[in-house]
Amino acid sequence: MKFCKRTDLAVIALILALAGVFYTLHSARQKETAAFAEIYYYNTLVETVALTTGEERTFSVKEAPNVLFRLYKDGAICFFSSDCPDKICVNTGLLSEVGQMAACLPNGLVLKIVSLAADELGADIAIG
């Protein structure tokens, strides 16, 4: 009996192909579960921002045009400027980790980082 036959090679090829399929599935799922930012206006979700696009831009939501958000290349996001009196939103700084949140109370805005995945490694809530 030969140690290795043609069918064996086919079995190996099949296994490797299956592994490839599973890997593709995995990366597709990863993309789906990547963190993104949500912007709420008085508890209503008004904007969802993908964080991993690699672009850098400044934008606002139509409910509060005087508040500017800024998304950075590395996937961090922040309140860039605001017309509120206390500027706590801007002072909060960059957010990038799931669980982090910033708010501009006078304008009724909340910016938070979320992920659809049951994230075993992220935080439920962030402080400090």
């Binding site: 980790e97 669980g99 982090q100 992220g122 935080a123 439920d124 962030a126 402080i127 400090g128």
Partner: peptide, 8 residues
């Protein structure tokens, strides 16, 4: 629960 402490 997992509570993240932000680096100031």
């Amino acid at each position: 629960f997992r509570v993240g402490i932000k680096n100031p």
